[in-house]
Design a binder for these strands. Structure first.
Lengths: 147, 147
DNA sequence: TAAACTGATTATAAGAATTATAATATAATA
DNA sequence: TATTATATTATAATTCTTATAATCAGTTTA
């Protein structure tokens, strides 16, 4: 479905003079098709079958390269490891404090906040992030809590 | 200036049945008087002089206790280590991507977003976080970039 | 006051996530 | 093809955080 997005991303890579290696291509493709904001380790495990010799360092290196070009955004939630997201379509996240589930939440982009922040602080604003925390329906249940 | 806030916080500790040890008191006081959202290590280094025998684990333990009571909020920004904040007055943060500087940014709480999120997702919302990212005035300068 | 109990601190080790290093391999260019 | 530059791999090192066990301090009870 998102062939265009992948092509666009690869064009961006080419324009940046970054080589498109099989591993790099796979990391990018996996991120584009993934809706779950994976961690580096999850990406590594997912591509292990296709690239049995791939190192975890390669995943981190490629994520860094993709982030530097602006194709990928690194997000740190409460848990220990970073999560990675292709920052194409704007949306927010709501996160369950009990089970860690992450659900997309569509809401108009808070442009007003950004522009006011620029005026007040003198920063050049590039983006913002917002997460909502709470308890998901599954974890709200009577005695069925945690773990 | 913020004697009242410290007293309030200590009362909360007492009501929760948590012992008020010198180390715990010091961590709490440091956080209340600090405007910089320090990391655990920064707190440790700041109190090292007063408590030469204090362990880093003590700082982490106390931060966890204070967080569980609700006196302290743990924030994970882009960098590697968590930062801690006394979540008394509601405000947002704007963060410089170049130098990591964090500036408070006052804006009306986004209650509307929370209530809409509850309706749409079925979560029980407890709180939200929003951070704005950009380049601060100091880092915007001509060739004076990074580090 | 003494003894017992609970919780806190310390020192240390262990764990996990990420980054750095050096050697090898691959791709691009002349 | 030869040369050069970049990527990958394997491994080690760092950093942040948590777990463990022993010691210590404060509180309660007899």
């Amino acid at each position: 479905m998102s062939e265009t997005r992948l092509d666009d991303a690869i064009n961006t890579l080419k324009e940046s003079g970054v080589r498109i290696t099989p591993q790099r291509h796979a990391v990018l493709e996996y991120l584009l098709n993934s809706m779950t904001h994976p961690t580096a380790d999850e990406i590594y495990k997912a591509l292990e079958g296709k690239f049995p010799n791939m190192s975890v360092a390669t995943v981190y290196n490629n994520l860094r390269v993709l982030r530097e070009i602006g194709l990928v955004r690194e997000l740190t939630y409460g848990d220990s490891s970073s999560r990675f997201d292709c920052n194409t379509s704007e949306h927010y996240h709501i996160i369950c404090n009990e089970c860690g589930k992450i659900v997309d939440f569509h809401y108009p982009t808070l442009d007003e906040v950004e522009s006011l922040a620029e005026q007040v602080t003198g920063f050049d604003v590039t983006y913002h992030r917002m997460e909502i925390y709470g308890t998901c329906e599954g974890c709200k249940g009577p005695a069925t809590q945690k773990h």
